[in-house]
Amino acid sequence: MALVVVPELPLAAWFEALDEQLHRAAGFFADRPVVANLSTVQEDETTDLAALLDALEERGMKLVAVEGTDAARLSGTRWERLTNLRQRLEDTRETVAGRVLAIPDDPPEPEPVSAPNSLLIDRPVRSGQSIIFEDGDVTVIGPVASGAEVIAGGSIHIYGTLRGRVIAGLKSGAEARIFCSKLSAEMVCIDGVYDTAEQWSETFNGRAVQIQLDQGGLKFSTLD
């Protein structure tokens, strides 16, 4: 289906409105044949119709025909080749109004999906490996070996034996916690407060433990 474009005077204002419309519906005119109805603008003898058509083409419109004007007005220009569909000058804005189509806006840009703020590792973290995830929580399904480290912006969850070192709360600070299903860690740290294995009670070792910050110190509590 061809679209009919009806420029209006004053042209500057009309083009401004058109550009605005094109900005919101960029793909609307792509690959669609366009018929320019010049019945309104041709009333002004000084309007440069060829330049007007050039301007439409510059905006990506594929002009296939011109209507509502005298073919003589375009003779000698490159637009002359376009068939003048209607020789009748009375084919005016009013008579085409019934065919005016509302141009739908482009669908709004989808909200950018925020990156997941957790990292899941479902394999053992081996000695010498370092898992660093500053954007949020880290969950490990498997053991964290002696000599391995897990560093997280938020909390750390270890479903396995924790033998290495874990550093939580790089971003979230004191709110972060550390969970493990079996504690055998070398060092644990939340928000810069750390304890080495010698500093916590032996009774926590080998058990499921939660570690959190409490009054400036690390508080260990069993989960099992």
């Binding site: 394999r123 081996r126 000599g147 391995a148």
Partner: peptide, 16 residues
């Protein structure tokens, strides 16, 4: 022994 086991763990990580 613990030292050998830890080094093996490191090597397994590298194999992977």
């Amino acid at each position: 022994e613990v030292s050998s086991v830890r080094d093996s763990d490191r090597i397994i990580g590298m194999l992977d």
